[in-house]
Computed example of a mutant assay.
Amino acid sequence: MNNVLFIDPGQLRSELVLEAMQPVPDGMGGYAEGWVEIAMIWGRIEPVSVTNRDFGTRPQPEATHRILLRFRPDITSDKRLRKGERVFSLRAVHDPDETGRYLICLAAEEGR
C-alpha cells in the first residue's frame, strides 16, 4: 500500500522568514535572545485552535497553527517563523509521510 501524502505545492503562498536564536551578550555575564534570519521560505499557515492559558488572574490566549513547508533539514523546533509582524514559535516539526518532501510544523503564535 502506498502511503504517500498528496500536497498541492500551489497552496504554499505565504512568504515566511526562518529565524534562529543567537545569544547576544548583555554586558553582565549573561545573554539576551537575538534572532537572525536564515532563509525566506514559502508555506501554508492553517489556524488550529485558540486556548486560554492562566497566568495569575489574567488568562492569556494562545493561538496554534499548522504550517506546511517544503522539507529543509535545518527546520527544527528551536527555530521560529515570521510573517511580517507575526511570529510563530515552532513546537513540533515532522515529515508527514517520511519522503523528505514536506514538513508539517505545529506552531504557537507569539503575542496573540
Rank of each mutant, 00 (worst) to 15 (best):
M1N: 08
N2Q: 12
N3M: 11
N3V: 13
V4A: 15
V4F: 13
F6C: 09
I7H: 11
I7F: 15
I7Y: 13
I7N: 05
D8E: 08
P9C: 06
P9Y: 08
P9H: 08
P9V: 07
Q11N: 10
Q11P: 01
L12R: 06
S14I: 05
S14K: 05
E15T: 12
E15A: 04
L16H: 04
L16Q: 03
L16D: 02
V17L: 06
V17S: 02
L18I: 02
E19D: 00
A20P: 02
M21P: 03
M21V: 08
M21N: 06
M21E: 11
M21D: 06
P23K: 09
P23H: 13
G27L: 03
M28I: 05
M28K: 12
M28S: 02
G29W: 08
G30I: 05
G30L: 14
G30T: 03
Y31C: 14
A32N: 14
G34Q: 02
W35H: 05
W35Y: 10
W35C: 02
W35F: 05
V36S: 12
V36I: 12
V36L: 10
I38L: 15
I38H: 06
M40A: 12
M40F: 11
W42N: 13
G43D: 02
R44V: 00
R44A: 10
R44K: 15
R44T: 02
I45T: 01
E46R: 09
E46D: 09
P47L: 02
P47T: 00
S49D: 15
V50D: 01
T51M: 07
T51S: 11
T51K: 11
T51W: 06
N52M: 08
N52K: 08
R53M: 09
R53C: 01
D54M: 15
D54F: 12
F55M: 10
F55S: 14
T57P: 04
T57L: 14
R58K: 11
R58L: 13
P59H: 01
P59D: 00
Q60L: 15
P61M: 11
P61H: 12
P61E: 06
E62V: 15
E62S: 14
T64H: 05
T64C: 01
H65C: 07
R66K: 09
I67D: 05
L68D: 03
L69Y: 08
R70V: 13
R70P: 03
R70Y: 12
F71T: 09
F71D: 06
R72W: 00
R72D: 12
R72N: 07
P73E: 11
P73S: 14
I75F: 10
T76C: 00
T76H: 04
T76I: 03
S77T: 09
D78E: 10
D78N: 15
G84P: 04
G84C: 02
G84V: 01
E85G: 02
E85Y: 13
F88K: 04
F88C: 07
R91P: 01
A92S: 14
A92L: 14
V93G: 02
H94A: 13
D95V: 04
P96F: 11
P96I: 04
E98V: 05
E98H: 11
T99D: 14
G100K: 05
G100D: 06
R101P: 04
R101I: 07
R101L: 14
Y102E: 03
L103E: 03
L103Q: 06
I104P: 01
I104M: 07
C105S: 02
L106I: 10
L106W: 06
L106P: 03
A107W: 04
A107D: 03
A107S: 09
A108I: 07
A108M: 03
G111E: 07
R112A: 13
